[in-house]
């Protein structure tokens, strides 16, 4: 059975301006990602992996081309509508965790829910359960700066999933972590994301991830290059 397409990228181009000159980052990218698929993006620093994720999430608009998520062309939406779309359908995990420092762990997790709906007692219970799964139940009212890097990233993953988005975009989620912690975080992503059937695109330098991915691409020379692996 052919899997349903979750993300469709068509003729996507993006450039930036520096010293009055236009520099292309991508030119006419094409990519189809099926629902539940786990894509890994490899590439050198500065190759455009983060920009690619920003384009998919609608944080950054492309110069031309289309990004369709579950059939919705987000490039045709206004900035306001893109934000609302992102709020409902996309979860983000960043390299530097990016938790809101002025909110507690629980509040960081509840914020995406609060943006969608009125937070209920059940939501609070859900947060508690999730933190228990992450072995962080005792850090409910702790501020992010009191947590270790690994703990912060686990919370960041939980925040990306709490509102049940269709797509998870992870930008080098293990980049700031030691090997053991990175392993734990990848394990967590595998359990929480893949097993829940979510679509995920992860930009990374980490070769350990490659084995877990459905497909691997590298970003090179303004284009995506698919890697073929022997099965």
């Amino acid at each position: 059975m052919t899997k349903e397409t979750a993300i469709s990228i068509q003729q996507l181009s993006k450039s930036y301006q520096e010293s009055g000159q236009q520099h292309a980052i991508f030119s006419n990218l094409e990519m189809q990602v099926a629902r539940g698929e786990f894509i890994v993006l490899l590439g050198r620093s500065g190759s455009g992996k983060s920009t690619f994720l920003n384009l998919i999430s609608g944080i950054d608009p492309p110069d031309s081309g289309k990004v369709l998520i579950n059939g919705t062309d987000i490039t045709g939406l206004s900035e306001h509508k893109r934000t609302l779309f992102r709020r409902h359908h996309i979860g983000f995990v960043f390299q530097s965790f990016n938790l809101i420092p002025t909110l507690t762990v629980a509040e960081n997790l509840l914020l995406p829910l609060e943006l969608i709906k009125r937070v209920t007692r059940q939501d609070h219970q859900h947060v508690g359960q999730l933190l228990e799964k992450l072995n962080l139940a005792d850090r409910l009212n702790t501020y992010p700066d009191r947590l270790s890097g690994g703990e912060q990233q686990r919370i960041a993953i939980a925040r990306a999933l709490i509102h049940d988005p269709d797509v998870i975009l992870a930008d080098e989620p293990t980049g700031n972590l030691d090997l053991d912690t990175a392993e734990q975080v990848l394990e967590l992503l595998d359990i929480l994301v893949r097993k829940a059937g979510k679509t995920m695109i992860m930009a990374t330098h980490s070769p350990e991830v490659i084995g877990k991915a459905d497909r691997v691409f590298s970003v090179r020379n303004k284009a995506l290059h698919a890697h073929e692996f022997d099965s």
């Binding site: 944080i59 900035e79 306001h80 934000t83 992102r86 709020r87 809101i100 943006l115 925040r159």
Partner: peptide, 15 residues
């Protein structure tokens, strides 16, 4: 700026 950028990334509108 970065903190506000995160809020925008997780879905807070400019308004």
């Amino acid at each position: 700026t970065r903190q506000l950028g995160i809020l925008r990334a997780i879905g807070i509108t400019s308004m």
